[in-house]
Design a binder for these strands. Sequence first.
DNA 1: TTCTAATTAATAATGATTACGATTTACCTT
DNA 2: AAGGTAAATCGTAATCATTATTAATTAGAA
Lengths: 136, 136
Amino acid sequence: MNLTNAWNILKDNGYKETSKRNQILELFANDERYLTARDLLDVMQKDYPSMSYDTVYRNLATFVSLGILEETELSGERHFRMQCESDHHHHHFICMDCGKIKEIPVCPMDMVGAALPAYEIANHKFEIYGKCPECK
Amino acid sequence: MNLTNAWNILKDNGYKETSKRNQILELFANDERYLTARDLLDVMQKDYPSMSYDTVYRNLATFVSLGILEETELSGERHFRMQCESDHHHHHFICMDCGKIKEIPVCPMDMVGAALPAYEIANHKFEIYGKCPECK
DNA sequence: TTCTAATTAATAATGATTACGATTTACCTT
DNA sequence: AAGGTAAATCGTAATCATTATTAATTAGAA
Ligand SMILES: [Mn+2]
Ligand SMILES: [Mn+2]
Ligand SMILES: [Zn+2]
Ligand SMILES: [Zn+2]
């Protein structure tokens, strides 16, 4: 997901263009790591010292609901990053040091769907945690 | 994991036998769902009205560290359940209505280990969420 | 330019989790 | 069996992430 694409989605859904929204999106577009609300606020407050948590959380929720950001829970905190460009479903390795991710092209659901007859599957989570080559 | 087994582990590690610990373990031994600290406290306070959060969280941490309980994060809250009996590594389907689980015998790591050369893999999470046949 | 709904700031409230000093208890030693 | 001690628990406060509230500001349409 890139900036232009994100703004198209926002405009299509009637959201207004604000400088803060734009800077949040730029920040995510230039950072492949997972960030917390606090991470985001800290960076944003360099340019907007009065930026509030409400603005951060509200926009994060908006972006996630529109599929612009993806979200995961790491050690008890919500983390966000730009939705992957890749159009086919996949999963992630996440470096616990630097936060960078690596795509895992396979999905285990291909092998287990049949093992759950009569079950209604809503979603699933598959993540691998460790250290990337740079951090090892 | 059963009561006797759990107590053996606790005794081996120098933990004392208390009625509250025993009741917590009994509760988990008779409930295959994932429970939160609050769930646990609510049930325990029927027999021990003065039971405190400190006792709940301290014992949960102890049990997890000794491998008596397993833990996962569901919708932003820590959930706990008795460690599985099964001795071979596996994963779970979790019913989002009743909280019951079903074992998934496969592990996706069998297929992705080779896709991450030079990466140091520490752990992984694979869970499937939905509704079990009874709740559907 | 004017109007209006969306957005934001400032701050308080909430809910889960952790921390801490005082008290009680399990269990080892005598 | 009585006493001593470290572990366990209680009662409560503190912390931290997240959500809610209200008033002020602003983007975009008319
Ligand atoms: Mn990806
Ligand atoms: Mn299991
Ligand atoms: Zn998948
Ligand atoms: Zn596995």
